[in-house]
Computed example of a mutant assay.
Amino acid sequence: MSVQQLIDTDRAFNDMAQAEGTGKAFIAYSAADAVLIRPGSMPLLGRPAFIEAFSKASGSTLAWEPLKAEIAASQDLGYTFGRYTLSEGGEIKGYGVYVSIWKRQPDGAWKFVLDGGGTTPAPVALP
């Protein structure tokens, strides 16, 4: 498994969010017991909590881009780090950075097991 394949997975995750909605993408790309850390809120623990939270969310769009990735020597864990933009009604409302920890599933697919981020005052350049 190459680092590029993990970056491509994160990009496909974002592509799905843009095409089908953030909630649907987070549910599809999460491991069953994943944790989502959100600024100013309690973490979401597990896919059932994602389904409940995202069924109530509306009006905002989250778009992100991975800037860096690494995969453990064991080839079963990796991370992506990147930047995001939050928009509402086509207007940018905020910027931030994120990190996703990914775990290879028995079928070979990557699913995130931990995702979180924080806001930044402006877009972030490559590290």
Rank of each mutant, 00 (worst) to 15 (best):
D33M: 00
R47Q: 14
E70L: 06
N14S: 11
R38C: 00
K56E: 12
G94H: 07
L114A: 11
A25F: 06
E88R: 14
P66D: 00
M42A: 13
F81G: 04
A122N: 13
F81K: 09
P48N: 03
A57M: 05
A122L: 11
Q18F: 07
A28Q: 07
S2D: 15
F50D: 07
A25P: 13
A31K: 01
V97N: 11
T9L: 00
Y29Q: 11
A57T: 02
R104G: 02
I51Q: 10
N14I: 05
T85A: 00
K68P: 10
I7L: 10
Y84M: 07
K68I: 05
G118P: 10
G89M: 08
L6A: 05
I92D: 14
M1N: 14
S87Y: 11
A125T: 10
Q75F: 01
A63I: 11
G117L: 10
A25D: 10
K111T: 04
S60Y: 02
P66K: 00
F50G: 06
V97C: 10
Q105A: 01
V3G: 06
L62F: 13
K56N: 13
G21S: 09
S74V: 04
S58A: 09
I71Q: 14
A17V: 09
E88L: 06
E65L: 02
D115N: 14
A53Y: 14
A63Q: 12
Q4K: 09
A34P: 12
L36Q: 06
D107Y: 03
L77K: 15
S41R: 13
L44N: 05
V99L: 13
R38K: 09
A125V: 08
D76E: 10
P121F: 05
R47F: 00
P127R: 02
S100D: 15
Y79K: 12
P39S: 03
W102D: 07
T85P: 02
A31H: 05
F54V: 01
L45C: 00
G116V: 04
S55T: 03
E91T: 15
V99Q: 15
E20S: 06
L126Y: 08
M1V: 15
E91D: 12
P48V: 02
G108N: 09
A122M: 12
R83W: 03
S58F: 01
A17M: 05
A57P: 01
K93R: 15
D8A: 09
M42V: 05
F54W: 11
S2C: 04
S2F: 01
G82K: 08
A31D: 12
F13H: 14
A25G: 06
A72T: 09
P43D: 12
T119Y: 15
F112N: 08
T80L: 05
A49D: 08
E65R: 10
A63T: 15
